[in-house]
Computed example of a mutant assay.
Amino acid sequence: MTVLLIAIGAALGAPLRYLTDRAVQARHDSVFPWGTLTVNVAGSLLLGAVAGVPTSPAVTALVGTGFCGALTTWSTLSYETLRLARSGARRHALANVLVSIIAGLAAATLGYAAARALAG
């Protein structure tokens, strides 16, 4: 049952990642990967919220592991950073790593704190 919940969450998260990435990136005329940053920060916020409230293992599997796992993407962050560095956009590459890590941790912290506050 747990594997099925993870698969369902992933089946929703992966297409949302792709569509969001394309929509955000289409609005920016920049080599910086704004779409990947957006999905990674949003997924971190949601995962922080899931971690901040008492949930069943089923919800954690569906939303945390499945949905957030498929929505966010460390491998794409790594690839895009390498692509930026190889193309000579080293400052963009460094900014991609730093902003992604700092914003992701901040979003997870905010999600956790907000969920704890709302859960009372």
Rank of each mutant, 00 (worst) to 15 (best):
V3Y: 15
A42R: 03
N40S: 00
L62V: 13
L45M: 05
S87L: 13
E80A: 05
A70C: 10
Y79L: 13
G66T: 06
G48E: 01
I8T: 13
L98D: 07
L46S: 03
V39G: 02
V41C: 04
I102T: 11
A61N: 02
L98K: 04
L45C: 04
E80Y: 08
L47H: 04
R91D: 12
L46M: 06
A70T: 10
A11K: 04
A10W: 00
R86N: 12
G104D: 04
V50C: 03
I101T: 10
T38I: 05
A95N: 00
V97Q: 07
G64T: 02
L5F: 13
T73V: 00
G13A: 05
L71K: 00
V97T: 11
L16G: 00
A23V: 05
A117C: 06
H28W: 15
S87M: 09
A89D: 10
G35N: 07
V63M: 03
M1S: 12
L37D: 01
A108P: 03
A7G: 11
S44H: 00
L105W: 11
A58V: 09
A103F: 09
H92N: 10
R86E: 13
L110C: 09
A119V: 08
P57Q: 06
A93N: 06
A103T: 09
T60E: 13
L37F: 11
L110H: 03
G35I: 10
L94Y: 09
L5D: 08
A49K: 03
V97Y: 08
A108I: 01
V53D: 05
R83Q: 09
V24I: 11
T60A: 12
G52H: 05
T38E: 03
G69R: 01
G66R: 01
A106Q: 10
T20R: 00
T76Q: 09
R27C: 02
T36K: 03
A93D: 08
G64Q: 03
G69P: 10
L16K: 00
L82G: 10
A119M: 07
R22V: 12
A113S: 10
R116W: 07
P54G: 12
A42T: 02
R83A: 12
L118D: 09
S75P: 05
